[in-house]
């Protein structure tokens, strides 16, 4: 049975207007909106401990502080998504601190630890560029007013992360030698993981409710292609223009061509870099947010200690 305001919502979306209140939503729209917000909040939140681990290896105080500034932004972005969920009736406290670590929704990339400053700056150039494409799409096309407005801040700050990633990548590339080789290795393993970030290729996807509800404007392949062309390809990896760096996962791009219909996800195995990626994953960080006693922590602090 169609909810009472189904027609009204459809008309509102068709007019290109923004949804502002739960009274204008159908239960289906609310569910999709919450899911999209949750993925966004979780991804931003999980990026923080992942980046922190690498920021600890910053070569100087200036570099460390740049890392902290980026983490502060990511946490504030997570706060925006979780607070909107809170306004929609969820509990931020429960979502962050009381959820099973396995229930968090974020790209697989954050399950692979970033272990050096070089890996952090490549993550800034690649992962944050992916986030920029995805959130930029929601900022531009999204139908939920409060989120669209909240993303103004997010877009400005993600741009700063990209610049940090690009500037440092350039610097490391110019340093040459071992530093540059490490940069190349980071590009090699992070590239396919970022391709995967955008989800299933369009030809394997049955139907997108998110598109119907204008919770996003572009398809997975369109966004993936945008990532490949605007940010990553043109600017971020100067090693490539120097002719010594190659993207070894070119097959991934076939998904957007549609001809081969290759799935982005299973074709590349992260085991080429990590002996056992599943054993080292973001779940290690999550106890930091679930405040379980005795759980491993990064750093080894016990959250909430001293609280009544």
């Amino acid at each position: 049975m169609e909810p009472a305001n189904s027609g009204a919502l459809e008309a509102l979306l068709k007019r290109g207007e923004l949804v502002e209140s739960t009274s204008e939503m159908t239960p289906d729209y609310l569910r999709e909106l919450k899911h999209t917000l949750l993925v966004s909040g979780d991804t931003e939140l999980i990026s923080a401990p992942a980046y922190y681990l690498a920021a600890r290896k910053a070569p100087s105080v200036n570099a460390f502080m740049t890392g902290i500034a980026i983490i502060q932004d990511e946490l504030a972005h997570a706060h925006i998504a979780y607070h909107i969920l809170e306004e929609l009736g969820e509990s931020q406290e429960a979502l962050i601190f009381k959820r099973d670590p396995k229930a968090f929704r974020y790209p697989y990339a954050f399950d692979v630890p970033l272990e050096s400053w070089t890996e952090l700056v490549v993550a800034n150039a690649m992962y944050d560029q992916a986030g920029f494409c995805l959130l930029g799409d929601i900022h531009e096309h999204g139908s939920y007013g409060p989120w669209k407005r909240g993303l103004v801040k997010v877009m400005a700050e993600e741009n700063f992360h990209l610049r940090n990633g690009r500037n440092w990548s350039k610097r490391i590339s110019q340093a040459g030698g071992e530093a540059r080789e490490e940069l190349q290795r980071a590009v090699d393993w992070m590239f396919p993981l970022t391709v995967e970030w955008f989800g299933l290729p369009d030809n394997l996807k049955q139907h997108s409710t998110q598109l119907d509800y204008r919770l996003k404007g572009l398809t997975n392949d369109q966004l993936r292609q945008q990532w490949l062309s605007t940010g990553f390809r043109a600017h971020s990896m100067p090693t490539r223009s120097a002719g010594t760096s190659t993207i070894r996962a070119a097959g991934m791009r076939s998904s957007s061509g549609g001809a081969s219909g290759g799935r982005a996800t299973p074709r590349w195995s992260p085991s080429s870099r990590r002996a056992s990626p599943s054993s080292r994953c973001a779940h290690e960080f999550l106890p930091a947010f679930s405040r379980r006693s005795g759980a491993p922590r990064l750093p080894a602090f016990s959250r909430r200690s001293g609280a009544p």
Binding site: A48, I71, E93
Partner: peptide, 16 residues
């Protein structure tokens, strides 16, 4: 150092 370890998300942000 406490930016991912404070008792609330808001306090994480403030620590950073």
């Amino acid at each position: 150092e406490w930016c991912i370890a404070a008792p609330t998300l808001e306090a994480d942000i403030a620590a950073a």
